[in-house]
């Protein structure tokens, strides 16, 4: 069944003519994008080649410590991205800490769950499974975490009079904040729900397409995709909930106040 059509450098060179076409389009129509197109495509090629070599190396090493280290580095990069997205952020390192805690715990829990139940490679930490799994999980978990964080911090900061109105009448902080926590988790889960309902109808998921192109039987590819979707929604839910609760917790203190003074000034614009 493995009828992989191996690509030669010449094949890729031919395909790259499409990038040249984009660049020419930019020059002719004065889109002023040609520099960015060239730089972005060069970055893409270099980054992918690099990760290809790293993966090859790590698969060959087959050392659990090295695999874990690579996954942790990926988690940290994802955490940095989640912390950079929200419009309102905590002063100092708190946003990064919340992003890292949510992303890391959701990724590790979901990946370990998959590796010990559905996938069960030998050994279970085999990098050929663990690394790509962590990668795809991280992409979605990053998305869910940053949407959830952005929603929670933005909505509570905007609705300060409403939150404090409840506090002044004797509500606990969590009674006043829970509607915003709920809204944030919902927001974090929307993309994966969209992705699930659209898959196969509106879009062919990229992973599945790649597997089919690489010669895998479509039904095998579909089963993998279904498994992935379940894992992604589980991971997104954990991450969105974790980020929302941690951020809400970071906005209060032992006297159940709303501590918006812990947020940095809103960025201009």
């Amino acid at each position: 069944m493995n009828t992989v059509i191996s690509l030669t450098p010449r094949d890729l060179l031919v395909a790259s003519s499409l990038i040249v076409l984009d660049a020419i389009l930019s020059l002719v129509l004065q889109l002023n994008l040609h520099r960015q197109i060239v730089i972005a495509s060069l970055r893409m090629v270099l980054q992918l080649l690099l990760i290809g070599y790293v993966l090859k190396l790590i698969f060959a090493l087959n050392n659990p410590a090295v695999t874990l280290l690579l996954i942790l580095i990926m988690v940290l990069i994802a955490a940095r991205e989640t912390a950079a997205r929200p419009e309102r952020r905590f002063k100092g390192w708190t946003t990064l800490g919340i992003g890292a805690a949510s992303v890391a715990s959701a990724t590790l829990i979901t990946a370990l769950f998959a590796l010990t139940t559905a996938l069960r490679p030998h050994p279970w930490y085999a990098p050929r499974y663990a690394v790509p799994l962590a990668g795809i999980l991280l992409g979605n978990i990053l998305n869910a975490t940053s949407l959830s964080l952005d929603s929670l911090l933005g909505s509570i900061a905007r609705e300060r009079p409403a939150v404090e109105a409840r506090l002044t009448l004797g509500a606990t902080y969590w009674e006043a904040a829970t509607p915003f926590v709920r809204g944030a988790i919902r927001r974090g889960l929307v993309p994966i729900i969209n992705q699930m309902s659209a898959s196969g109808v509106v879009t062919l998921p990229g992973i599945m397409t790649g597997q089919i192109l690489a010669g895998l039987d479509p039904m095998e590819a579909v089963k993998y995709q279904i498994l992935l979707m379940f894992l992604l929604s589980g991971g997104s839910g954990l991450a969105a909930a974790g980020a929302a609760y941690l951020a809400a917790w970071g906005l209060t203190d032992d006297r159940q106040r709303l501590r918006l003074d812990r947020l940095a000034q809103a960025r201009a614009g």
Partner: peptide, 11 residues
């Protein structure tokens, strides 16, 4: 000790 702010809040 109920505080009624100048700007009212509605949830």
């Amino acid at each position: 000790v109920v505080y009624v702010p100048a700007e009212s809040g509605w949830w």
